[in-house]
Write a protein that binds this DNA or RNA. Structure first.
Length: 433
RNA sequence: GUGCUUGUAGCUCAAUCGGUUAGAGCGCCGCACUGUGGCUGCGGAGGUUGCGGGUUCGAUCCCCGUCAGGCACCCCA
């Protein structure tokens, strides 16, 4: 009988966990750089927390069951409802704006594909209590900086940026009836996948007639210049758009190379009210790395504080795929600082003693476990472990109260008195300290 | 959930038309090297060819089922 991980779930042996930690540590570093503080919530929530926002259809995509107390519960598929509950309570006393981030593990019962598993870790950043454009720019710049922190550049990824208020304004100008907006947005959202022909047919089915071409023209906008030109041609006042200020702020923040205005970006989730954006790899080979936007009415609609908010979620799976594709997966890190080697079995007690002294000083230390240790084998292992230092303890030097201290990187070796060993090691490992 | 496709040492792959004992590189362990690492040479361990059934004298190869991965749908974090 053999067992394997459930489909869509991952084992994390040390090298995989190191890669995961590499990503998550970058998330935390950058989020804190933007003044965000970390929170968390329960991984298991009442099922209704999700059906209230997304309807009963979502139940088929959840890990949900009945607990022993007869409660219908679900493993969290997203962080937003939990966040909404927590921040609404907190918002009564917290100074605004609120900058919170979380790194939850999320679960969804769907068939897995590359970049989409049944479990992933996700950076969630939300900025609550500020409706102005610089809040939008802040979270977008944060998402960009996370990617840069991991070594990705403007050649590797881009932000596709839109604003539902701009879409609404243009649709209204194109005489699309308000009650058709949701349907039209759905067609625009799927435009890239379904193609122009099928999308046009769908729009005609909706009874839009000639106005279908206007919708397609709007969704075809792929740059700020094209948007400006379209607005000018249609006689729409673009100067008052908050979207322009978001773009201006991002430009001033040095993010222009990453930004691509793209009015086909809608985001499937219905609750977005303004800015919407997604990060993609430039080659277009992967799913979205990140997605987010402004949701000024969601918190109130979930029964919480009536506060504007903007945020995003970024998963570890697609991001990890992109990093691997670009050769940005870091090599195995050194597992120890120092290997303490014994020349003969008689040296072992001194090896154990010195190893513990070095460990007490905070160093990561390993020594041989063999009954009859061989020096060559020990030094080879020291190299494999990535140790910077090796201490060689043998009978002759030991009789003089000395050991040999090797710098494995510099390939040098010096005799060191036993009572100076710890400080000499610390001196090499942290020369500034 | 639907369709297509792929499954061979830990990893990447090979194996003529269906043929007898399934190979190589990397990695791992050992030896050369009984007091000094990265190189080199030699050797070793490691496989019910994903699993189950069928056809056949004989199956890694053909057929069916199943599980898992990939791709496209569905849906989206």
């Amino acid at each position: 009988m053999t067992f394997q991980a459930l489909p869509g779930f991952r084992d994390f042996p040390p090298d995989e966990l190191a890669f995961r930690a590499h990503i998550i540590e970058a998330w935390r570093r950058v989020a804190r750089r933007y003044g965000f503080v970390e929170y968390d919530g329960p991984p298991l929530e009442p099922l209704e927390l999700y059906t209230a926002k997304s309807g009963d259809e979502i139940v088929g995509q959840l890990f949900e069951f009945e607990d022993k107390g007869g409660r219908r519960v679900a493993m969290r598929p997203e962080m937003t409802p939990t966040f909404a509950r927590m921040v609404s309570e907190h918002a009564k006393s917290a100074p605004k704006p609120i900058r919170w981030f979380a790194v939850p593990q999320l679960f969804r019962y769907e068939k897995q594909q590359r970049g989409r598993l049944r479990e992933h870790f996700q950076l969630n950043c939300d900025l609550v209590g500020e409706a102005g454009p610089r809040a939008d720019a802040e979270v977008i710049a944060l998402a960009i900086d996370v990617c840069r922190e991991l070594g990705l550049g403007a050649d590797d990824f881009k932000v596709r940026l839109s604003d539902r208020r701009v879409l609404y304004a243009l649709l209204a100008h194109a005489m699309i009836p308000t009650d058709a907006f949701d349907g039209v947005l759905g067609v625009i959202d799927k435009l890239e996948r379904n193609g122009a022909t099928a999308s046009r047919a769908r729009l005609l089915e909706m009874g839009l007639g000639d106005r279908a071409e206007a919708v397609l023209a709007i969704a075809a906008v792929r740059s700020a210049d094209e948007l400006t030109a379209l607005a000018r041609d249609w006689g729409v006042d673009a100067a008052s758009w908050q979207f322009s200020e978001v773009l201006g702020a991002l430009g001033a923040m040095g993010c222009a190379d990453y930004i691509e205005v793209d009015l086909s970006i809608v985001r499937g989730l219905a609750y977005y009210t303004g800015t919407v954006f997604e990060l993609f790899d430039r080659k277009g080979q992967l799913r979205a790395i990140c997605g987010g936007g402004r949701y000024d009415t969601l918190l109130a609609s979930l029964g919480g504080a009536d506060l504007p908010a903007v945020g995003f979620g970024m998963g570890d799976v697609v991001l990890g795929e992109l990093l691997k594709d670009r050769g940005l997966r870091p090599g195995a890190p050194a597992t120890i600082d120092c290997y303490v080697a014994a020349v003969t079995a008689e040296d072992v007690p001194e090896v154990l003693h010195q190893a513990q002294r070095l460990r007490a000083a905070g160093l990561a230390v390993e020594f041989p476990l063999d009954a009859e240790p061989k020096l060559g084998k020990q030094l080879k292992l020291a190299g494999t472990r990535g140790a910077r230092l090796a201490v060689v303890i043998g009978p002759d030097a030991r009789a003089r109260g000395e050991v040999q201290l090797k710098d494995l990187a510099a390939r040098t070796q010096v005799a060191v008195p036993l009572d100076q060993l710890v400080e000499r090691c610390l001196g090499i490992l942290s020369p500034t300290g």
